[in-house]
Design a protein around this nucleic acid. Structure first.
Lengths: 120, 120
DNA sequence: TACTATAGGCACTTTAAAGTACCTATTAAG
DNA sequence: CTTAATAGGTACTTTAAAGTGCCTATAGTA
């Protein structure tokens, strides 16, 4: 546990949910438990490696739980932990702001949001 | 204006406030207008180049206003725009969560937050 | 027997983000 | 006539983030 020094508390938040994928993963998990393959399908552009890597880090930080079913082929589910759920409000706001921003910039969100997510 | 495709709306948000510095800059601006040199002092580890670059991008996205005073030596101030203020709630929550997280991980926040910011 | 599905490991490469170093302009003060 | 202060530009380099390709295990099915 290296003693980092932060100049402002938001830096600590960014260490946990920063980067290209973590917020996206977490936003999906706000809608409930998800299997690895479901997450992969929801994020067509993420690579297997990045998905696993980000999930590991979120688990290490206590944000998500990893649920392993003893089956073949393997089944693993991820869900927000209790602690992770303390981010729910932020995640919801981030998604909501994104929608507002898309409408502001592009007018019609259906032009920039993949259909797959429009009807969900 | 390239028509990006997002798989989830939060990706649009991250395009605007993602990266290492933007949230930090914006959090400082939630406390009011700041000169370039003030921002630099508040973020001892940011380089001149990154500061200017991030400020330019935030301005382009309509999040902040740049106020130029016709003086020598130059004086420039930055403030949240009306649109930027729609992020205020998110920014406050991100800071608040960071404090909670620091206390959870390190116990005492005075050990990881630079003194300069503790008494502000 | 070969192939599928699922979750993931690992070495290596690429790309994008960030950092470094050095440059500009202007005016006042010493 | 040199220096300080402020805000910023730009070419180049470094580093960290992300991506690619190929590998594993296992039980069931065609």
């Amino acid at each position: 546990m290296k003693q980092k020094k932060y100049n402002i508390s938001v830096e600590a938040t960014l260490e946990v949910i920063g980067g290209k994928w973590k917020c996206v993963i977490l936003c999906h998990l706000t809608h409930g438990k998800k299997r690895t393959s479901e997450l992969k399908r929801l994020m067509p552009n993420i690579t297997q490696k990045m998905l696993t890597q980000q999930l590991r880090e979120l688990e290490e930080d206590g944000i998500i739980n990893r649920i392993i079913y003893n089956q073949v082929p393997p089944k693993v589910e991820y869900e927000l932990s209790d602690y992770g759920r303390s981010l729910q409000g932020i995640l919801d706001s981030l998604c909501a702001w994104g929608e507002i921003h898309i409408e502001r910039v592009y007018g019609d969100k259906s032009e920039v949001l993949e259909e797959s997510i429009l009807n969900e």
